[in-house]
């Protein structure tokens, strides 16, 4: 389990426990965190699960892979700490992770 904090664009916070092995996207869906659409269900095909990783956590969430990088290129309001949450695998090392959600997906 890892405790993950999802912060909506409005500022609303959701602190939830996410099973390791799932993705940060799945953690949001399973815990009814609004703001992550994930139309393609995690296949890295749609760019509707965009999140901003808290700068303190960027090293631990790892690098974007090239497909993710390319998809993100075309999401809205992309920043240095943008990730597709379906591509971040939850492990014990991410216990305490904080991600923020963009104003809208797509």
């Amino acid at each position: 389990m890892a405790k993950i904090t999802y912060i909506e664009h409005s500022g609303a916070q959701h602190v939830v426990d996410v099973e390791t092995g799932l993705t940060v996207m799945e953690g949001a869906i399973r815990n009814l965190v609004p703001g992550i659409d994930a139309d393609c269900g995690g296949a890295c095909a749609c760019a509707t699960c965009h999140v901003y990783v808290d700068p303190d956590w960027m090293a631990r969430t790892g690098e974007r892979e090239s497909m993710e990088e390319s998809m993100l290129d075309f999401a809205g309001d992309v920043r240095d700490n943008s990730r597709l949450s379906c591509q971040i695998k939850v492990s014990e090392a991410l216990d305490g992770l904080i991600v923020r959600l963009p104003e809208q997906q797509g």
Binding site: A47, M67, S70, M71, D73, F74
Partner: peptide, 9 residues
């Protein structure tokens, strides 16, 4: 095929 920028554009 493995060309996301082309697809998205």
């Amino acid at each position: 095929v493995n060309s996301a920028p082309e697809f998205m554009t």
